[in-house]
Simulated assay, not measured.
Amino acid sequence: MRSPAESSAFVIGSAVVLPPAVESAAEAVRSGRITEEERERLGVTSVHVGAEPAPVLAAAAARAAAAEAGVEPDRVGHLLHAHTYYQGHDFWSPAHFIAHEAGFGSCVPMSVGQMCNGGAAALGIGVERVRHTACGEPVLSVATTADTFGGSGIDRWGSDYDTVYGDGATCVILSPEAGDTSAPALRVVALDSRARPQFEAMYREGDPFGTAPHELRAAIDVKATKRAFFERCGGTTEFRDVAIKTIGELVADVIDTAGVAITDVAATMLPRLSPKVLDLMYSAAIDPRLVPTLHCERDTTGHLGAGDFLANLDHLRRTDLLADRQYALVVGGGGGFTWSAALVQKVGPAVPRA
């Protein structure tokens, strides 16, 4: 076994699959789903909307990432799939479907449930698996996410405050080795999470426990439960204070663990949330020295459910935002509440998009 001090984890392949159809914020205003004022707060021009089930998109992302990395399917030891919303069947394992459809017949599939922090949680489990691979042929881990927000069960534009949910799937492939140095990789230098479960009621406040999906409400209404939660708490002050403190400590600890200076961080990727939501939790938590490095890629994707974290890793691989050997910070979170941060280093040139 490699010791933790000697072991590494690299993102050697990645993919983001977005359905071809799009729906614009202007269309949402014209149809009465949001107001013009809400559109301006979202900071989104359009989102992708798809007819294919979420796990089908995830399998496509996994196949694309594996093909790009030249991965032999039988080398994949683990597949971790995260999602926030319905996966197409009521009593079923989407992770096993994705593994089968992607050709990873030798892996152990697992579903990861951490709401919008799910992609980061899947990444963390995958990193631990490859870092503790026994000597011999390296075993790879695959992390996927997929969410689609169509149908009558949720309104992507109106079910939540200041958030629009876009359809899409993501995948990253993790290896204990960087592989071909002519291809880009991201070395995962440090990764950690912090949870504050006292805020779990934000997504159920005022509702009794049900016994079947949509038994209590015909459609998801996050606004109703958040409104009830903050009315009970006397406003958002406590949540904001705890979030800022937690994220600030998390980011500082991850950078410290990585052994780099904060001035070495060339890019900081934020979740694909509206400016108002980022201001509520993230903006005040970020060290002022990182402000010039902030990036949020929400404009044409919106919030990808569990997928923002992995989509942001893919963005770092595929663009020239980072030069070879430069560092980036990726930050995210999800209801419950859990926040995650990763410090990664680019190894190699950018991947051109197909």
Rank of each mutant, 00 (worst) to 15 (best):
V189M: 04
G153W: 04
L216W: 01
G210N: 08
L123D: 07
G166W: 14
G126Q: 10
S175Q: 02
G118E: 01
R131Q: 10
D241F: 03
D155L: 04
E200K: 14
R194W: 10
P176Y: 00
A185T: 15
V127I: 12
A185Y: 05
F149C: 04
S111F: 02
A218Q: 08
R204M: 04
E128G: 00
C233E: 12
R196F: 06
R232Q: 12
D147S: 06
H132Q: 13
A178I: 00
G168L: 02
V172P: 00
G166K: 11
A219H: 03
A185E: 05
V164Q: 02
A219F: 03
F149P: 09
G168N: 09
P213F: 15
G119T: 05
R240P: 11
A121W: 05
C135T: 15
I220D: 01
V188G: 13
M110A: 14
V189K: 12
L191C: 11
R227Q: 15
I220V: 11
I154Q: 00
W157Q: 10
F230E: 03
T181C: 01
P213L: 11
V188N: 00
P208H: 09
G150D: 04
K226S: 04
R156P: 07
S152E: 12
G118Q: 02
N117A: 05
A146V: 14
C171R: 07
D162R: 10
Y203C: 11
V130N: 05
M110Y: 00
R187Y: 08
A219Y: 01
I220L: 15
G206L: 01
S182H: 14
G206M: 09
A121V: 15
E215L: 03
V142P: 13
S159Y: 13
R232G: 03
